[in-house]
Amino acid sequence: MIVEKSETLPVRVSEDVVRVRQLVRVHAVKAGFSLVDQTKIVTAASEIARNTIDYGGGGEARIESVTLGIRKGVRLTFSDKGPGIEDIERALRDGYTTGGGLGLGLSGAKRLSNEFDIQSAPGQGTTVSLARWK
């Protein structure tokens, strides 16, 4: 996979989530995504960025335009140094939440992505990466 362009944004306050959404949109448009695919990855980005703030205590988002052969895609990596996730499998279940939300953030974002990965351990922070291809 070749990274054509990489940008990093802070994810600390709720306005940052809006900025992440807007930058992800720019990358998705440039990769030639359809409107539906743009909407899907921007929505996934919004969910994970919010988790980075609410559960990770803030962190950063790396937004990358990538190519794999002739395929174009957008890869997102959200990392925080928060408390980490104890049970990743459970966190990925629909409706499971330790906050006050609907418990759809992680599971929903996973469904909206082509690739999805979580690295986390208690006390080690959390890194969520996801990608969507044209």
Partner: peptide
């Protein structure tokens, strides 16, 4: 609601 938003919302599980 825009069509792309509706499609995404259903896939999100909402």
């Amino acid at each position: 609601m825009r069509p792309a938003v509706a499609i995404t919302l259903v896939e999100l599980g909402l």
